[in-house]
Write a protein that binds this DNA or RNA. Structure first.
Lengths: 162, 162
DNA sequence: GGGGGCATACTCGGATATCTAGTGTCCGAGTGCTATAGG
DNA sequence: CCTATAGCACTCGGACACTAGATATCCGAGTATGCCCCC
């Protein structure tokens, strides 16, 4: 059980978009080049973000993506679910129903105990992601990345932002 | 990102094995029949448990599997990791290193901030699973399952336990 | 009747096919920019 | 010189191959059992 690499890409791309001035767009091409990723495939991750309403798109030259909401209003879970899907990581196929001793008219009332426990863990994971905002990530990055690199990266992006 | 169905099977099988009297073994065949699962494939999940040292095996007629430790000394995470593997759900391919503005002699000191956040969520998930013991599951099941069904299932298993 | 040896049937374990889902690529519809022609 | 228009280049979005991992199956090595023979 491993998250798609698209999740990593989407998070990094959102971090870049968060630093974009209001009204500017950044294209898939620029994002792909900046991260050294296949442009065509990265676009699928960005499509997921677009579909989830996290980013706005613009067509034509100087078009691309920008955040649809302020970075403080976007959390990690939204981004992860936009790419990875919203279904739980544990699927209960209710194998207890195959118990040969089970009476035929017997019908389970509550979900399987095993599933409930697994779902609780799943929810703990989601809750943790829900608690981290995109703005938090930007804050961390701005402290960790050397000012020189931060500045030049910002300029690199602005040169290509439409 | 969805856990293998083997995880579900392994958990249910462990619950059955937890009710087995000391020294008795239960075969893959019996476990598969009880849960309505393909015998050959279920054996792979049990192999995982065996490899992780959670269960002991015995060959020949009346052989099979039994728990290697008391149910109170086995937690959900051990079982899940035995089947699913121990690697983290988020893999960082360090795409920040592809930043075209990055100086060539620059070397990241700490792991990527994105990865750290994702790993924290992963750890929250694991911590939750680590906190549930196999004996807890058995306790829940013994309360939820109708006594009649519980009893007949137990007898069904004992008839086939070597 | 008791004990030892042997064939047997059953077990697990790893090696081998099939299928779904993640990965990667391609092309088309649509839009904003730009250059040009006309006023 | 300014404006309107037409062409164009660039954008995203969905449709189409490829590959890895999950799913399913098979066969072989090894052992405890039970039967049979011998004492």
């Amino acid at each position: 059980m491993i998250l798609k690499s698209q999740v990593e890409w989407a998070l990094h791309c959102c971090a870049i978009l968060a630093g974009l001035p209001d009204g500017r767009y950044l294209s898939t091409k620029a994002l792909a080049e900046f991260h050294g990723l296949p442009k065509e495939y990265l676009s699928k991750a960005l499509q997921g973000l677009s579909h989830a309403g996290l980013v706005d798109t613009s067509l034509g030259p100087s078009g691309g993506y920008r955040l649809a909401k302020p970075p403080a209003d976007i959390n990690f879970l939204e981004i992860v679910e936009a790419v990875e899907g919203r279904q739980r990581t544990f699927i209960c196929s209710n194998i207890r129903a195959n118990n040969p001793c089970r009476p035929k008219d017997y019908c389970e009332s509550s979900p399987c105990a095993v599933a409930r426990i697994m779902w609780e863990a799943d929810e703990a994971w989601r809750e943790k992601l829900r608690g981290v905002r995109l703005s938090d990530l930007v804050g961390i990055l701005s402290q960790e990345i050397p000012p020189q690199l931060w500045k030049s990266s910002f300029e690199w992006v602005l040169e290509r932002a439409g």
